[in-house]
Design a protein around this nucleic acid. Structure first.
Lengths: 250, 250
DNA sequence: AAGCGCCATTTTGCATTCATTTTTTGTCTT
DNA sequence: AAGACAAAAAATGAATGCAAAATGGCGCTT
């Protein structure tokens, strides 16, 4: 019995207990869903690894019914896949899958930019500008971790400015799928892309200030497309060289 | 006991029976999922209506376990919503929700157009041209039904040409959510939009022939945006006037 | 007669149990 | 010793059972 799951037997906090995390979810299956999703996204389960329900039940301290409900949802979200009679496995993403995901993400951000131009306030733009300069600081200090942190915040700000909850939820879903790969592959952006990306970000800000919707849409798509190439290339080459590090990013 | 569901007690065909529809799905919950999704999308359940599990079980001839699994998935897909301890109801879409959905659809089609330009073959373009002329015929004959049928095929062809299964699946999901509203509201496009839409379609074809990705992206977004206005306006005014008819369409 | 509160019924949420299917293990044959 | 077959063990899929919450109805109060 080789368990694919590293033992972190932390049972679900009883519903009554003060929920440390502020997201309350009365039902058990809801709680399980949130926990399992994070667990998978954070890469705690190896790709394609078999995940016996029983083991997850013990780990979460629940019965199989709510667990199976959560698994079905995760499968619908594209994080895992359910082979009939053969259990759930973490979805293995081919290179092609990743390319597709990146392109859809690019499309969503592109849309977000276009919509943002219709509704964004000057204050929001100012906030993004501040983030931009903060990121520039990280860039100058060669602080990749800080850089990607801010980078992600910028992109999320744009999505938020689009004023479209449906888009936001969809974006979050795809971001999760990709993040899962990031965590496990621990891949980095190329150094050489750094300066380029900074310039692109300036163009993004510029278009945003001018509320140039379709222009921003174009820039964002290309920006993400470039990232896609870098990321995919890196994955194809194999994991980290040790020269660059990154925990997560945009 | 007022049932929200019109009685169409057609139990699920036993797994052994020759599956008339070619989509085979061994597991019961999978079958239930497909059936229920169609059932909801086709508008058989009134908006916001309460749907007792028991009743659905009888209708489908199964026990509650697989049904509940299917409900969770449908909730994740956004078709229904599950209130804790208070059952499932068909998701009620506010006007704002619809606007958001249309915008996301516009973004997805816009992306599809952009990607399609990278990979579409001359044959595929020729096929779309044929559809276009066929649609033009329906337009001349004032045949709205035929018109929308072909219209939908055109948009689906573009999505198919994008060569992105992830995008295609996401597109299908949102299309389902919107179609549900279409079925129940039975709303129509304005007559006045017809000519305009035809012109836009010609521009789409033109950009596609030139493989002008970002241009096509722009045109498609605007095209869908215009439709959005027409559709939302119509919904706001209230259902059909009787002058125009439409079963479904893009 | 209208409003409020209590109790019965229904319904949901989860655990447990049962039936298949898959996987593993052990043995036998060659 | 290697491969194949068969039986045992385990895992999945679905149904049933049980506790808690919600809905509805009834009587009571004012």
């Amino acid at each position: 019995m080789k368990s694919a799951i590293p033992e972190t037997g932390v049972p679900i906090t009883p519903p009554a207990a003060g929920n440390g995390s502020d997201r309350q979810e009365a039902s058990l299956h809801g709680e399980v869903l949130l926990r399992l999703r994070d667990y998978v996204v954070e890469g705690n389960i190896p790709e394609g690894a078999r995940v016996p329900e029983r083991q997850l039940c013990e780990m979460l301290g629940i019965s199989r019914t709510p667990l199976r409900e959560a698994l079905k949802v995760l499968a619908a979200e594209g994080l895992i896949e359910l082979l009939p009679n053969r259990g759930a496995r973490v979805r293995q993403l081919s290179q092609r899958d990743l390319e597709e995901l990146f392109d859809v993400m690019a499309g969503l951000e592109s849309l977000a930019g276009r919509l943002a131009c219709e509704a964004i306030t000057d204050e929001e733009i100012a906030a993004i500008e501040r983030l931009h300069y903060e990121m520039y600081g990280h860039y100058l200090h060669r602080d990749m971790h800080g850089y990607f942190q801010i980078n992600q915040q910028i992109h999320e700000s744009i999505v938020a400015a689009a004023r479209n909850e449906t888009l936001k939820a969809t974006y979050a879903n795809f971001a999760g799928r990709i993040r899962r790969v990031r965590y496990s592959a621990n891949f980095a952006r190329k150094r050489q892309r750094w300066g380029e990306a900074m310039r692109e970000h300036e163009a993004i800000l510029d278009a945003l200030r001018r509320r140039a919707g379709s222009e921003l849409s174009d820039i964002l798509f290309q920006h993400l497309r470039n990232k896609r190439s870098a990321a995919i290339d890196h994955l194809a080459e194999g994991p980290d060289t040790g020269l660059e590090t990154t925990p997560q990013g945009d």
